[in-house]
């Protein structure tokens, strides 16, 4: 299909890791005969992403998320399967392809020498990506406004805090307006304000430029706020591809009912209505099966002096935790 920016077909990555038992004898034996085990980091993953989509890519540590991103950005050569991104085969590392993508890692947002100033680094990106002066100035103005970079442009990279490095790293990666972004844990280690800024920026950039974004994050709030669609990978396999709400309803058969009463000294038997999740002087949270929710809500309202009642999905963290432990 022509509007597919990313097309992944049975992509796999297997590598060999040396193994040996502890002890001097084993070390001597491995000197002569090395043993290896095969690690299947990514197994037979297939999915498609359309232009302009902002897709969450989640999974536990070691699931294969970053390895998949690296195969799609051309850093790693897959051991099996095919991928097409923007019409290119990533592992061929065509210069035209590399000029249209950016990979931004929260663990290493700004891969430049510490002696350079931020503006030096941006100017060098201009040279590398052959950005015309007019386009560079326009992009720099936009990014400076969106990321509040003015106070940082003349500072050396080594003198930046983590949050500042992340903002500058975003500008550094986007100064040439890539069409495809691979964001690998972009909010890693950031404070609350910086996280908020980052999320707004990603959403704005996606909306204004129609860039296609594949985002990994361990903070479910990032995924909840930014992504309508998620890909969930576990042990190298894609176990879910769809809307986040569908994942929640598929994994969790219950919703959370929060109830507070007008008479605080009442002590009803809450287990008659559902499973008690938490309880304090303000009220109680009950886990209630989705099918029984209308009936339970009606009984509560009829039988108890309810001051306030809200129905919410279970916390995404608990849903995802269950998926990581039990499967989707």
């Amino acid at each position: 299909m022509q509007d597919r920016t990313v097309s992944v077909d049975h992509l796999s990555m297997t590598y060999r890791a040396p193994v040996r038992e502890p002890g001097l004898g084993a070390a001597m034996r491995s000197f002569v005969r090395r043993e290896f085990r095969e690690v299947r980091a990514v197994r037979d993953v297939s999915f498609n992403i359309k232009e302009g989509e902002l897709v969450g890519f989640i999974g536990p540590n070691g699931a294969g998320k970053t390895t998949t991103l690296k195969m799609l950005s051309g850093v790693l050569y897959p051991t099996a399967g095919h991928a097409r991104v923007l019409g290119f085969t990533p592992h061929k590392r065509d210069a035209h392809y590399l000029r249209q993508i950016a990979m931004i890692r929260g663990s290493r947002p700004l891969a430049v020498s510490g002696e350079l100033t931020v503006l030096d680094a941006l100017r060098f990106q201009q040279l590398i990506y052959d950005v015309k002066e007019r386009d560079f100035k326009r992009n720099l103005d936009e990014l400076t406004g969106m990321l509040d970079l003015s106070p940082l442009l003349n500072r050396q990279v080594r003198a930046l805090s983590l949050g500042e490095k992340m903002r500058c790293g975003l500008a550094w990666s986007l100064i040439y307006r890539p069409r495809m972004l691979f964001l690998d844990e972009p909010t890693l280690g950031l404070d609350v304000s910086a996280i908020g800024l980052m999320r707004c920026f990603i959403a704005d950039y996606n909306r204004e430029t129609r860039a296609t974004i594949l985002l990994t994050s361990h903070y479910m709030a990032d995924v909840e706020q930014l992504c309508k669609r998620v890909l969930l990978i576990n042990h190298g396999e894609l176990v879910f591809d769809g809307a986040l709400s569908k994942l929640t309803s598929r994994v969790s058969s219950a919703k959370i009912l929060k109830v507070s009463l007008t008479e605080a000294n009442l002590a009803p038997s809450w287990t008659d209505y559902g499973e008690v999740v938490s309880q304090d002087e303000d009220g109680v949270s009950l886990s209630v099966n989705r099918e029984h929710l209308p009936a339970v809500t009606s009984r509560l309202l009829a039988q108890l002096p309810v001051a306030d009642i809200t129905i919410a999905e279970p916390p995404l963290e608990s849903v995802i935790d269950r998926v990581y432990r039990e499967g989707a």
């Binding site: 990555m13 590598y15 690690v39 980091a41 070691g62 970053t66 390895t67 690296k70 850093v75 790693l76 050569y77 890692r105 663990s107 690998d184 844990e185």
Partner: peptide, 10 residues
């Protein structure tokens, strides 16, 4: 070497 490069994970 590039085919063998295995910068697996983050």
């Amino acid at each position: 070497g590039l085919r063998r490069f295995a910068a697996i994970g983050g």
